[in-house]
């Protein structure tokens, strides 16, 4: 028994040292449990609170520390990478009494894609909402116990894909010939999150152009893979508008935000989701305040290192600028 325990401890210490030597640091997983903690916070939120829903752009680009610095109040961040905000917004409108402000990040390729709950843009949101409803006391206990471990050991990480380091992820990366073609380029993790769900782009992504290039390849792959999908513009817009009306009727405020994108990704978006056909009609039908980065001097001109998100430093500047505009327009107070 002693050999077993001591042997396992020696192995784990060596494993930790190995990953730290590969520049891994202890950090939190951006997982379902972290999301539901913040979803739960909405239950106690007041009309002075702000909740953010959307995809990765509002997640990367709206920095909570900076927002709090500008307004004195930290928003609740519920955005999820690679997802549409429709079902998260629907959940806030129909399953809570919240009547504060909801900032909705609009990334056209995701927002207008589909209403099908099991489709990739919605699946993760829907499953997290379900997890929020079904979560047990044991789940809560397990997560609370895991936080100090995640924060102390680099090897404790639930990341999947090419940067995953748990045994399953490591095995999944082994390739012995290719029986079935896999055209998806490697998709590296390029952000880090804290317990407040404040997500920041890693320094490497902002400074290492070759690394940023690997992310760009993934966007190009998604653009190509999604080219056959016809956006469900009417259905998604109507679904959203319906909820906007309900939310406004109970005194809530909705703000639409379109964050910056650049390079070939921006060109693709302009071509497939032209502003005059998607964003403008949405703003008009919603009849809510809307902020497109192109319309404000202080919100444009940023360079997204991988075409889709702002570096941490630029995100701070973007957040401060946006908040100042919102305060000036009377939608936020200091």
């Amino acid at each position: 028994m002693i050999i077993g325990i001591v042997g396992a401890l020696i192995g784990l210490v060596a494993w930790e040292i190995y990953w730290r030597n590969h520049n891994l640091v202890p950090d939190l997983d951006d997982d379902d449990d972290l999301w539901v903690i913040h979803r739960e916070a909405v239950e106690d939120a007041t009309e002075d609170d702000v909740v953010i829903v959307g995809s990765s752009r509002v997640y990367f680009d709206l920095q909570l520390d900076k927002w709090e610095e500008e307004t004195g109040k930290r928003p609740i961040q519920l955005a999820i990478e690679g997802t549409s905000p429709l079902y998260a917004f629907d959940d806030l409108v129909n399953n809570t009494d919240f009547n504060g402000t909801i900032v909705v990040g609009v990334t056209a390729g995701l927002f207008f894609s589909t209403l099908f709950p099991e489709a990739p843009p919605n699946e993760k949101v829907v499953s997290r909402i379900k997890y929020y409803e079904d979560r047990t006391y044991a789940d809560r206990l397990n997560y609370n116990l895991s936080i100090p471990l995640q924060s102390s050991f680099a090897f404790i990480s639930d990341v999947s894909g090419v940067d995953g380091i748990k045994l399953k992820a490591l095995l999944d990366e082994i390739e012995v010939g290719q029986r079935v073609p896999d055209p998806m380029p490697p998709f590296h993790k390029f952000s880090e999150v804290d317990i407040n769900r404040n997500l920041r782009m890693t320094t490497r992504t902002a400074t290492d152009t070759a690394f940023a290039g690997t992310i760009k390849k993934v966007w190009l792959f998604f653009n190509q893979a999604g080219s056959e999908n016809v956006p469900e513009k009417e259905a998604t817009t109507n679904f959203f508008i319906e909820n906007v009306k309900k939310f406004k009727n109970r005194g809530g405020e909705v703000i639409l935000v379109r964050c910056p994108s650049t390079g070939e990704l921006r060109e693709h978006e302009n071509q497939v989701f032209p502003r005059n056909e998607f964003w403008d009609p949405l703003v008009e039908k919603s009849d809510v305040p809307a902020y497109h980065f192109e319309d404000y001097e202080s919100l444009r001109g940023f360079d997204c290192p991988e075409w889709s998100h702002l570096s941490a430093e630029d995100a701070d500047i973007f957040t401060a600028s946006l908040v100042r505009i919102l305060v000036k327009d009377g939608y936020l107070s200091k």
Binding site: M1, I2, I3, G4, I5, V6, G7, A8, I10, G11
Partner: peptide
């Protein structure tokens, strides 16, 4: 003991 350690 070694088998136990590897499993842990």
């Amino acid at each position: 003991g070694v088998g136990w350690a590897i499993m842990l």
